[in-house]
Design a protein around this nucleic acid. Sequence first.
DNA 1: GAATAACCTCTGGG
DNA 2: ACCCAGAGGTTAT
Length: 395
Amino acid sequence: MLSFRKLSFKRGELYLNKVLRCGQAFRWVFHEKLGEYSSTLRIDGHYKIVVLRQESDDFIEYATVGKIEDPAVPAFLRRYFRLEVDLAKLYMEQWLTQDHRFAGKNPNGVRILSQDPWETLVSYICSSNNNIARITKMCHALCTHFGNPVGHYDGVDHFSFPTSREITQKASEETLRKLGFGYRAKFIVATAQKMESDRLNMSDSDYLESWKDHLQYEQVREKIMSFNGVGPKVADCVCLSGLRMDDVVPVDVHIARIAQRDYKFSARKQDIEELQKEYKNLPITRKKVNYELDSARCMFKQKWGEFAGWAQGVLFAQEIGRTTGVSSEGTTLTQKTKLDFVVQVKEESASLKRRLSQTETVKVKQEDTIVKTEIEYSVTGRPKRRTTRNVEYVS
DNA sequence: GAATAACCTCTGGG
DNA sequence: ACCCAGAGGTTAT
């Protein structure tokens, strides 16, 4: 029997259902019956199984699987969830005042995590031209095949995320292709090999982390992009979610579209020339960057300030990857929505309505009350079938 | 430097 | 039952 302890925070600052399923972290397994998330986390260099649950809006509960209680765990989790960052304050004092599009929005517990840098790097290499369900599957495959067993909980075996050495020793492009990595197989192998040969005696993550100590963002990104399969988008994700560079806004196709359509961000010739000048000593950046998108990144940073990456998460986390997650059971499960999700839908209905006129991905039926949402999850975590949502429609 | 095609696999919708 | 676009991009040409 696990013994859970509380981790408290200001009301509304963290919702596990959002943060752990928004397509930022790919390795949390949701246990439907217990209402718990579990994963392995690298804490002070050692992997532990961590179990999390949340039934209240001002604390989560955590437990570790194992005999002794590690006093480092709460501090680690505070850092993992970046609980020192006051989301409500950022919203009120920075985002809302700088961007009217935040009006009526609510950060509502959407946070940027501080994830293990090496795991972040490899996970996001898997994300290229891919969907979240498969990325999740690939991350788990890496762990089960090339990581080490850490233990098991509620019938699920847990593994460490493989180090660069473990990947170079145990994996090959061929084995990874057989595991379904497709063309990313050679990226993973090449990245692991480069890391293994570059890192000296540091751990993979310490090595990545060390760049941050003495280099500016542009140079850190240059170094991260020196890995095969890592372009500007992936590098920025590593900066933001792996290295806590809070002002970095990763610009994917989706954000690029929004930048243009909603913000009318379009690079002037002068903007691009300035960037080109700035990157003159950064050959890899010059080769890989798209100046139009990079310019949009700069404009978002200017508009939203030192936590611009978080602002992007708050504004757009709901639009993509909402329905992700892995269940602990092999059979198909039904997930009933939690109350906070329903409330969230209510709050978002205005923007949801706006989105619907632009995309046809969600089907909404006009009703005067919210009934419920049911999502069926397959083993891979991808919703197999989604019933029609009944959403309060605000005119 | 900018534009284009190709790339693995899986899945929902025609 | 099939087919095909598209999915949190990157690389090669």
